[in-house]
Design a protein around this nucleic acid. Sequence first.
DNA 1: TAGAGGGGTGGAGTTACTCAAGGTCAAGTC
DNA 2: GACTTGACCTTGAGTAACTCCACCCCTCTA
Lengths: 138, 138
Amino acid sequence: MKISEAAAQSGLSIDTIRFYERAGLLPRVERGQDGHRVFSPRDLRWLRMFERLRATHMPLKVIQTYVELSRNPDSNEERRAILEAHRLELDHQQAQINACRALLDEKIRHYDSLTTDHNGRMQKTIQRPNHPQTADHQ
Amino acid sequence: MKISEAAAQSGLSIDTIRFYERAGLLPRVERGQDGHRVFSPRDLRWLRMFERLRATHMPLKVIQTYVELSRNPDSNEERRAILEAHRLELDHQQAQINACRALLDEKIRHYDSLTTDHNGRMQKTIQRPNHPQTADHQ
DNA sequence: TAGAGGGGTGGAGTTACTCAAGGTCAAGTC
DNA sequence: GACTTGACCTTGAGTAACTCCACCCCTCTA
């Protein structure tokens, strides 16, 4: 499998895959006799995993640690711990999203209230009273 | 309000606040006669908003655009559109988190299955059979 | 008066990409 | 057979958003 396919199937960009290889996340990728990378199904499984972990902001260093650990079959505890820690991190991100969504909902409701009258019909806001609470609404 | 308080109350670091000011997100922060920044309640509201938007990865440029728009009272549509777009982005992040959580749950279950027998008791894994499916589990 | 604590500036360092320049090679076209 | 095209290669520079550091100023307390 060549790099363009690996990119398409993993959701990563070609540049990112090359970058990950240089960073040592994906050790010893095979090369064809033309010098092109040849990705194995196992490489692809790693890439897909990287994509999910990075999409949720696990640092590359941690991923690297995980990859190195997985060369040692006695490292199940440590690898499990890394994943479990990241699961907690996901909870945290979840909370951030919820908080931000609350903010957005509130602001958007506010903007709606400026252009819609109370029967739900749109209203051209030609005159705008200088109401201090709304005049400088962020 | 001085910068340390603004940091404590906004959840941003002192360095980040200074960086945002330099970037033009927080224009004309007042200064005391000692040259120290003096943050108004309005500044703090902005900082809190920045914190939430950044925690969910809205680019600084977009935030900057929003801030600039909010100096023009006729920009409600545009500002609303920015927030709405980010609300969609939150859905996307939500999906990423869910996908990653599924991955983590599966992997962690796998690790559990390696150290726990089927009655739920822990088992010291002294001998490890060379099972190809599990031996190279990522 | 010495030192600690909090603020200021400018600039370098970090993370994780992302892009551009220039080079090789195989396949298809004239 | 020359040529173009397209996919790949490497190297190195650029970017976003911080983060850290060195060094300076001021004020307050021991």
